[in-house]
């Protein structure tokens, strides 16, 4: 009989470039980067705008609303920390501001998830980092 060791999930550790995102998450705000030259909103954290290559940007709080762009239901056990979650959803949320975010939906059964459904951000707090999840709006 094998005993499964409880393995912690591989949560992100904020680095300098992503710190405003994770600081915002701690306070319940979904932070994106907005180009000061052309106005394009992008997912953190890259120095250059992927539309005009400007390096001038500001951090802006997103609405936290979006729609399910697409999703999959994971059955494969890639990582021991997810063994008890299988099958779980892997979802890409298209934010109201345009960029897409990889995440999981909570508060909904796998079989109820639909492409295009409206969702809103929720926050999963861990000891030293907060992760965005989404739930049906």
């Amino acid at each position: 009989m094998t005993q499964e060791t409880i393995v912690p999930k591989p949560l992100p550790e904020p680095d300098e470039a992503s710190r405003p995102f994770f600081d915002g998450a701690r306070q319940g705000r979904l932070m994106l980067m907005k180009c000061l030259t052309c106005g394009t909103v992008r997912l953190p954290s890259r120095r250059h705008c992927d539309r005009c290559l400007s390096q001038e940007s500001e951090w802006v709080a997103a609405s936290g609303r979006g729609t399910v762009r697409t999703f999959g239901i994971m059955h494969q056990r890639y990582h021991a920390a997810f063994a008890n979650d299988i099958p779980y959803n892997v979802t890409v949320v298209e934010l109201e501001e345009g960029p897409r975010l990889p995440t999981n939906l909570i508060g909904i059964a796998n079989g109820e998830i639909r492409v295009g459904m409206e969702v809103v951000v929720d926050w999963e707090h861990h000891d030293d980092v907060t992760i965005p999840r989404f739930r049906p709006a």
């Binding site: 999930k9 992100p12 954290s45 990582h79 892997v90 990889p102 999981n104």
Partner: peptide, 29 residues
């Protein structure tokens, strides 16, 4: 690593693993 640095950690935290995941997402759409 147990604590991936920066935004890539959102993928691991979501259990978004393998080449299989993005292709499943594309097929679903």
């Amino acid at each position: 690593p147990s604590r991936p640095r920066g935004m890539v950690g959102l993928y691991t935290a979501a259990g978004y693993f393998g080449a299989n995941t993005p292709y499943a997402l594309a097929a679903r759409r």
